[in-house]
C-alpha cells in the first residue's frame, strides 16, 4: 500500500497557551507538489517544524511514510531548505562542495568517513542544480539565487523522497525566482520528489503546484490550483484575516 508521505490528523499546537494550529488535518500524497499559503503568523513554519520533529504536537497524530513520527528514523528521506538559508553566516569559509557534503553527514553516520563515492554523489548533485562551475567557490561569494541552489543541493544529496522548503525565494531576484521554480518543477516531474513549499507567491503556486493548502491557524482551503483560483475575494479574506483583492500578474 502506498502511504501518504505525510499525514496529519487533528493537530493542535500552542505556544504558551496561544493556539497556533487548531484541528489541522491534511495529507501529502507521494509525488505531489504541495504549496502552503497563508498570512504571516498563520502557523506555516510551525507546521513544518512539527513535520520535521523539531516540535511535538499538543494533540493529534503525525505520520511520515506511514509510520508514527515517534518511530520514524529514516530522516535522510526528508530534505529541508529553511528560511534561515537566506541569513546564514556568509563569512563561513566553506566551498559549495563542502556545504553540499554536509547534507550527507547524518546519512553516512557516526564513526564513518566520507569516501570517493560520496564525493561523486556530491558533484553529481551540484551539477543537478546547475552549479557545477562553482563547486570549489566559497558559498559567501555567490549570489542569493546561486546560494539557494546550493542549499537545495545540500537537501537533495541524501536522495530524499520529500523536499520541504520554507519561503525559499525570499531575497532572490525575480529572474532567479523563475529559474528556481523551473528547478522545483524538474525535481518533481523528472526525479519524482514530493515537494512541500511554504510561500507567499500564490501566483507561482497556481502554476506549478498540484495542490494548495490555505492555512491561518486552521485550514481554510485545501484543493487544486484551479479550485484556489476560483476562490472568491470573500473566501480569501477569510483565509488571510483581512480584505483581499486578487491581482493577476505574468508568470510563465
Amino acid at each position: 500500500m502506498d502511504h501518504p508521505v505525510v499525514s496529519m490528523e487533528n493537530i493542535y499546537y500552542a505556544y504558551e497557551r496561544n493556539p497556533v494550529l487548531n484541528d489541522v488535518i491534511f495529507e501529502i500524497p507521494r509525488g505531489a507538489f504541495m504549496g502552503i499559503v497563508g498570512p504571516n503568523g498563520g502557523g506555516k513554519t510551525t507546521l513544518i517544524k512539527l513535520i520535521l520533529g523539531l516540535l511535538k504536537p499538543d494533540n493529534g497524530e503525525i505520520r511520515l511514510f506511514g509510520q508514527p513520527i515517534g518511530k520514524f528514523k529514516d530522516w535522510s528521506k526528508i530534505g529541508f531548505v529553511s528560511q534561515k538559508a537566506n541569513t546564514f553566516n556568509k563569512g563561513f569559509p566553506a566551498t559549495v562542495f563542502e556545504v553540499v557534503s554536509m547534507g550527507l553527514t547524518a546519512k553516512i553516520g557516526y564513526f564513518k568517513f566520507f569516501t570517493s563515492n560520496h564525493k561523486k554523489k556530491v558533484l553529481e548533485t551540484i551539477d543537478q542544480v546547475g552549479m557545477g562551475a562553482y563547486a570549489y567557490k566559497n558559498i559567501g561569494s555567490l549570489s542569493g539565487g546561486q546560494q539557494q541552489r546550493v542549499f537545495i543541493a545540500r537537501a537533495l544529496v541524501s536522495d530524499p523522497e520529500l523536499l520541504i522548503l520554507d519561503e525559499p525565494t525570499v531575497g532572490v531576484d525575480q529572474e532567479n525566482v523563475q529559474k528556481f521554480y523551473n528547478l522545483l518543477h524538474q525535481l518533481n516531474k523528472k526525479y519524482k520528489i514530493t515537494l512541500l513549499l511554504i510561500t507567499h507567491d500564490t501566483a507561482a503556486m497556481t502554476i506549478h503546484a498540484t495542490g494548495i493548502v490555505g492555512l491561518n491557524k486552521e485550514i481554510y482551503f485545501q484543493g487544486t490550483p484551479d479550485e484556489y483560483n476560483a476562490l472568491t475575494n470573500d473566501k480569501l479574506s477569510q483565509l488571510y484575516g483581512h480584505p483581499v483583492h486578487i491581482a493577476t500578474h505574468g508568470h510563465s
Partner: peptide, 22 residues
C-alpha cells in the same frame, strides 16, 4: 578526525544538522 563531518555540519547550520538527525 572521527567527528569532523558532524562538527563542520553543526558549525555551519545547527538547525539543518538537528533536522538531519545529528
Amino acid at each position: 578526525r572521527l567527528f569532523y563531518k558532524e562538527l563542520v555540519t553543526l558549525s555551519f547550520d545547527e538547525e539543518h544538522a538537528v533536522v538531519s538527525g545529528i
